[in-house]
């Protein structure tokens, strides 16, 4: 949204009937994962950057599933399948393996035999993550890292989409060299760079995905003593379990809308805000494991239930 263009000034509120909405769609479900929820015919500005992968894999899974149970939904919420890795596979497979050193070949093989799941122990997830990061740098840095010209880094989907659509992607050439580089050159160069980093990571025992990602739940003051560090949890950006290093989908909940509402939930914290309480962070390990607690949808008749530990009375000051 260009701030200097007065036609973008505040004009009013979008009528409720024109807000993006969906009711009883024929596909049988409503889903949302921060994706762009309207198509290009939508007349109002909605922002410019929306993640694609999570919504895509959620819809694919829901399309495949039938007779879904509560346990199916719990499993779906912590699914670690990396759809971006699936889309990127044919691009990385173009690497000319005869040009790889032994170390590079080793990491190539780890990546190739990887099941494309960012589960805690997967080394392929770490290789893919770093290789793709280096490939983006190798292809775009020469164009985008221009002094005094701040340019935004492209979206997470841009490189895969461009390479699939454009077999002679001109960004592959490094502008700073007389030679004309191809995608092939970039694949080799980026794997070389990634291998160097992977060697360091391997030496410190962090090649497994959760060790590399090293997820932590931090205290607001970022004091390590009050935080939960080195959590054994997979997932990552673009994955249904989108748990990154220090943020992600914390609150997980499944609601079963039967006559009597049944609900399950968990979050990486606890019920007490007191750092000295055992209830301060006692949910974190269960959350990392992907287990849930039954939530109590309290009814009026349960006011005297033994699970009510304390009550709070409000009164008007007369």
């Amino acid at each position: 949204m260009p701030g200097f263009d007065s036609s973008y000034m505040w004009k009013g509120i979008i009528p409720q009937s024109e807000n993006p909405h969906m009711k009883n769609p024929s596909r049988g479900y409503v889903s949302s994962a921060n994706q762009l929820s309207v198509d290009s015919s939508y007349p109002y500005y909605t922002g410019y950057s929306f993640p694609v992968y999570r919504g895509y894999i959620i819809n694919r899974r829901l399309d495949e599933m039938s007779g879904i149970t509560v346990d199916d939904m719990k499993k779906l919420q912590v699914d670690n399948y990396n759809i971006k890795a699936e889309f990127a596979r044919d691009i990385l497979m173009q690497t000319d393996q005869s040009k790889l050193s032994n170390a590079e070949k080793k990491y190539f093989n780890i990546w190739q035999s990887w099941n494309m799941r960012n589960d805690t122990a997967e080394q392929g997830a770490t290789v893919f993550h770093l290789w793709w990061e280096e490939l983006e740098k190798s292809i775009w840095s020469d164009e985008l890292h221009i002094k005094d010209l701040p340019l935004p880094w492209p979206n997470e989907t841009t490189l895969i989409e461009s390479l699939h659509k454009d077999s002679a992607y001109r960004f592959a050439d490094n502008r700073n060299t007389p030679a004309v580089e191809t995608l092939q050159d970039n694949l080799i160069a980026s794997l070389k760079k990634a291998s160097e980093r992977l060697d360091d990571i391997d030496r410190s025992g962090r090649l497994a995905w959760s060790n590399f990602k090293d997820t932590k739940v931090q205290h607001l003051l970022k004091l390590p003593a009050f935080s939960k560090l080195h959590l054994p949890i997979g997932g990552g950006a673009g994955i249904i379990n989108a748990t990154k290093e220090d943020h992600g989908p914390s609150w997980r909940m499944v609601i079963h809308l039967t006559n009597e509402t049944e609900a399950w939930g968990v979050y990486p914290g606890g019920q007490s805000g007191n750092t000295g309480s055992k209830y301060f962070d006692n949910f974190v390990d269960d959350w990392a494991k992907g287990s849930y607690y039954r939530l109590w949808m309290m009814k009026k008749t349960e006011v005297k239930d033994e699970r009510v530990k304390w009550t709070m009375k409000f009164s008007k000051k007369s």
């Binding site: 004091l223 390590p224 003593a225 009050f226 750092t275 000295g276 309480s277 055992k278």
Partner: peptide, 13 residues
């Protein structure tokens, strides 16, 4: 009575 929970965290700090 606190099972050394808070003191361990402060010691860590």
């Amino acid at each position: 009575p606190n099972d050394g929970l808070l003191s361990a965290k402060v010691a860590d700090m």
